[in-house]
Design a protein around this nucleic acid. Structure first.
Lengths: 190, 190
DNA sequence: CTTGTCTATGCAACAAGTTGCATAGAAAGA
DNA sequence: TCTTTCTATGCAACTTGTTGCATAGACAAG
């Protein structure tokens, strides 16, 4: 279960509550793994029950109390064990691609605005990642920070940037194709 | 549920049995959606119960009988409806990226062979896609086949090719980073 | 003073996906 | 002949992930 390991990594980087983790999963960790708060709370409780975590009740002023989790020794051991065993290369799951192929059985040009919307969403994410790169790492070829954690975080972020760039370019390609099809067979329903 | 729609698209492209669908999900449809045979059989039965499909028992020589599914009118309507409603832009889920970030809390160079393995797997897929492109579409800039379905299938395949190319390049980048870290802090455990 | 947003945690029900196992005839190879 | 592989379908149990709802105090805007 990779959510468990993503939580261990995130808590090793910095201890925090379920709520804080949920927000990290909307940002940096979310570059490569997503989770809702319900899922996170459930898994945190299980991991705590398994002795992988330590909890500390933290009283706050002007806010509800929170449970701050950190990684216990068995949690760190579990992460190390997982790091040393192979995982399967993952396949993509892209709903939009299903739609694009399905457009052959409908009006292909009906998909143009949908693809445009996705293109903009990926472009937004790309710009967000690039802003984060400038902020946290001083740009793509900054002088090396010489901190292992930062180096690896930057390498993962470069992956997110490459993914979004590639996706935007591909969706532009798809839009070209859809527009060409629309021009060639106007009003046709195939 | 996108598996349902992926099945509708695949059956519209060509009717087939659950077994045949499962094999297509290991190939062309599998470029962007994966499913096991158990999942496919279960969903096929539900879709049949919902009246989206038509079944035909086909006797075969030298092989077990099969149930050949094709799309009924309500199935086609369901696909059209789905094509016209928006879907959310998807996020990636990349277990290897979790590992890379986790490597900061272990020996980073222990990950090198794992990343190399993934790099080769993605490179294999890339070559497989490129071979399919040559076979089915005559290469990246073949004369336009002028068939809507083929155009769209090619556009999706180009997306798969772009994804694998990007991934291989990124993993090379990650390998550079890991090797640099190994050279800089030999035998260190962070 | 009410509505909305933010922090913070959680239950219950459901949907989707995975894993292990079972059956069964035909063909192919050792 | 025995084992393996391929075609073909399916059940049962389990894990993972999603959706809807609930609570509750603090704060800000109208």
């Amino acid at each position: 279960m990779a959510l468990e390991h993503a939580i261990l990594v995130s808590l090793l980087e910095k201890p925090g509550s379920g709520y804080e983790l949920a927000r990290r999963f909307d940002r940096s960790i979310g570059y490569f793994w997503t989770a809702t708060h319900q899922q996170i709370y459930r898994v945190l409780r299980r991991m705590d029950g398994d002795g992988l975590l330590e909890v500390r009740e933290v009283a706050q002023q002007g806010r509800p109390d929170k449970k701050e989790y950190s990684v216990a020794a068995p949690g760190r051991a579990a992460l190390t064990a997982w790091l040393h065993e192979p995982v399967e290369p993952e396949s993509i799951r892209h709903e939009l691609a299903v739609k694009i192929r399905g457009a052959a059985f409908d009006e292909p040009s009906a998909l143009i605005s949908e693809v445009e919307r996705h293109r903009e969403a990926h472009d937004d994410r790309l710009r967000h990642y690039l802003a984060g790169e400038r902020r946290d790492f001083g740009g793509p070829d900054a002088p090396r920070p010489l901190d292992v954690g930062q180096e690896l975080q930057h390498a993962v972020l470069r992956g997110g940037i490459a993914f979004e760039r590639m996706t935007v370019a591909w969706l532009d390609d798809v839009l070209d194709t859809l527009r060409r099809l629309r021009a060639a067979r106007p009003g046709s329903r195939d």
